[in-house]
Simulated assay, not measured.
Amino acid sequence: MRDAVRVGQQSPAELVDRYGLRCDLVREGLVRYLTELCTRQDFGLALSAFSDGGCS
Rank of each mutant, 00 (worst) to 15 (best):
Y33E: 09
G54R: 11
L34F: 07
Q9A: 14
A13V: 02
D17Y: 06
R2V: 03
L15C: 05
R32H: 02
G8A: 08
V16E: 02
R40W: 03
C23Y: 02
G53Q: 04
D3H: 04
V16T: 09
Q9F: 09
S48A: 15
L21C: 07
F43E: 09
P12E: 11
T39C: 03
V5A: 09
D52C: 01
A46K: 10
G54Y: 06
V26A: 15
L21W: 08
A4M: 14
R27C: 06
G8S: 14
A13S: 08
L15Q: 13
L15Y: 07
Q41I: 01
R32A: 13
L15K: 10
R32W: 00
D52N: 07
D17P: 05
G8Y: 10
L37S: 01
R40T: 12
G54L: 10
M1K: 03
T39R: 06
T35Y: 03
R27I: 00
F43R: 01
D3Q: 06
V31Y: 04
G20N: 09
M1F: 09
P12D: 02
E36W: 13
C55V: 04
D52F: 10
L25G: 14
A46N: 10
L47A: 14
R18E: 13
T39Q: 10
S56R: 11
S48I: 11
C23G: 02
V7L: 12
D42V: 08
Q10V: 12
G29V: 01
P12L: 02
S48T: 09
L30V: 08
L34G: 02
F50V: 15
T35K: 02
Y33M: 11
F50R: 08
L21M: 05
G53F: 12
D42N: 15
M1D: 12
R32S: 09
R2W: 00
C38M: 07
L45N: 00
D3Y: 07
V16K: 04
F50I: 03
A4T: 14
L47W: 02
M1N: 10
D17K: 08
L30T: 06
C55A: 02
T39S: 13
D3I: 01
S48C: 11
S51K: 05
D52T: 07
L34M: 04
S56L: 11
E36F: 07
A4L: 12
G29E: 10
C23K: 09
T35F: 05
F43I: 09
L30R: 04
G53S: 08
R6I: 00
G8H: 03
S51D: 14
S56V: 06
